[in-house]
Design a protein around this nucleic acid. Structure first.
Lengths: 344, 344
DNA sequence: TTGTATGCGTTATCAC
DNA sequence: GTGATAACGCATACAA
């Protein structure tokens, strides 16, 4: 194992001081052209590479952000991560990652590690079960800015980038109404989830906007397991006034619901139309997809979170405002029709 | 902004030396119980958190690995990343990430950054276009072990975890033959890709094993664009001896091919059966999926790469063997039938 | 234009 | 048991 070259080594060989080397390497104007060139030459010969760990330590700046998401293997989060990494890398920042797997304990451990690493900032989509927000406040002490992404804690004074589910839901209902549907079902997620409440509220508003009375029988929910997805669907199918369209909590619910519908010898999107909130990027290629998906644009959301975070870094360079500003970005979800297929 | 507490601060408050504090914080046996407790108490009060950047710098160990993949938004890579992160986090290691987007220049820049950060190890799936392997050798100088994942460079003396495409291809052909197919087409990727050659070789071997003569007309290729996917499919459909089954380079090719087949009023998996190499996790839920997918188990592969890498860390602690050992893990790809659907 | 000296926070090696 | 001090690699304020 060869010894890793340092500026000391370069200085020794050139019989100059380490400060000269350091400055030359940075192209500092005060260093003579000849010296600068000689330094660079030796640096090249030795294959010198700056030791970032030393620099971080000294500069109290890591040029690294942390990204904590529940699960990278979910398409929603992985495309967000991809967007964030790309943005950060363009700003010459590095990205540290962690998966909470919806476990608040693990989430907390990751946050603490990131704090100890003195990361410059953090983007996080909190776990479904996170109720203790103390950790987030701790980060402020360490002056580590945090931007929440998609899943926002119930806290004041935070930065976030999120998605407004209402717009997509309203579009979906508009679309269904226009196609003549008057009896629209909703298969929602567990009621304790904020995400469920948002969908429900938007659903009701959508119907109200069209002066359609809300029939509570048409609103069912599931814990998102396949069993309950099937059960919930069955509930709707068993109604005297069977819905002619169903909006589902997400694609997995749609998949199960559509499968069950078929066992009743009904044709999806003819006898019963489906619209789901999007998780999977692949529907648009399929024949037996829902009529449409409500997209939440994870990549855009992620990039926006990164923008906000890097904006804070810039703020920091400028003078601090007396009253801190909190940045919020809310994207409108949007219904994307799958009617037009790749080949059609 | 409050000042971040250090061991110095603790030492000052307690009027002891920093070494005592450091030792106490680590539960060093030589420090008296009382002192240890007093130190811990003050540390808690001050909300002291160790500064990892200082420790990394001093210890010349970062407890961080780097993962470089072409694109996290691809399901294949994101599930690999998820597996790797999970494994690393269980070993109390951190994960640094980078996306090459198939760009060798960017890949090189990322590798250099990681080297400068003195990461403890790197897992990489090289870009399709990487031809210069010099960078990888450089890392050896810095004693940073590298494990290649799925996409392996043509180099000697490397560690890698990969997938053997042959096994899945043979299974697929076995399966088709058993179902009575004798005329099997292959829509392959661009010939310069190693991945294409592997598929082709396995394809030929599969047919040979069944004493089926290879009809070169049944082997077509595409640059993986939708246009060429359609063209390639059209070529097969136009043959006098039209294939009754087609194996495709990947799911996207399958999607396009299946779409085109339908425009000829042929029924997928009845008139022409499809089997594809898997990218998308969602086929298994769909009706109009290929008959089967050939799975490459990205998560398993990723975890194996991590296992190899962490094994090297352990090796390093033990004495070094005189002749270095290179670790290879090759998973067998496997055909997974989609015949049985979620509800069926 | 260059050199000297100092310090970032921590741990390790000596001392006592 | 505890303390003083050096060292890690680098950048910079200050001197010259």
């Amino acid at each position: 194992m060869e010894k890793i070259p340092t500026i000391k080594e370069i200085a020794k060989r050139l019989k100059v001081s380490t400060s000269t080397v350091s400055r030359a390497l940075h192209g500092h104007p005060s260093i003579g052209l000849v010296t600068t060139m000689r330094v660079n030459k030796v640096a090249n010969e030795l294959n010198y590479e700056r030791n970032e760990t030393a620099i971080f330590f000294k500069q109290r700046k890591t040029f690294t952000i942390g990204v904590i998401l529940p699960d990278f293997s979910e398409a929603f989060f992985s495309s967000a991560l991809s967007g964030i990494e790309d943005y950060a890398s363009k700003k010459n920042y590095n990205v540290f990652i962690g998966q909470s797997f919806e476990n608040p304990e693990k989430e907390k451990r990751i946050l603490e590690t990131m704090k100890n690493h003195r990361l410059d900032g953090i983007i996080i989509s909190i776990s479904k079960n996170t109720t203790d927000f103390e950790v987030f406040k701790q980060l402020k002490k360490y002056n580590i800015p945090i931007v929440f992404f998609d899943r926002i804690p119930g806290m004041e004074d935070i930065h976030y980038s999120a998605c407004n589910l209402q717009s997509g839901m309203l579009q979906a209902i508009d679309c269904l109404i226009e196609k003549g549907h008057r009896s629209i079902g909703l298969i929602n997620g567990p009621s304790q989830l904020v995400a469920s409440k948002e969908r429900l509220d938007a659903f009701k508003k959508g119907l109200n906007d069209h002066q359609i009375a809300i029939n509570t029988e048409l609103i069912v929910s599931s814990d998102l397991s396949s069993e309950q997805n099937h059960q919930a669907t069955q509930q709707l199918l068993s109604l005297a006034e069977r819905p002619t369209a169903i909006i589902t909590f997400n694609d997995y619910v749609a998949r199960d619901a559509m499968a069950l519908v078929k066992t009743h010898n009904l044709v999806v999107n003819r006898d019963i139309s489906f619209i789901s909130f999007a998780n999977s990027p692949i529907w648009s290629f399929m024949d037996n997809s829902p009529l449409a998906s409500i997209e939440q644009f994870p990549q855009k959301q992620g990039i926006k979170a990164a923008e906000i975070l890097f904006g804070l870094f810039d703020d920091h360079i400028k003078e601090k405002p007396l009253t801190p500003v909190f940045h919020h970005a809310v994207f409108d979800s949007s219904m994307v029709s799958h009617a037009v297929k790749a080949m059609a």
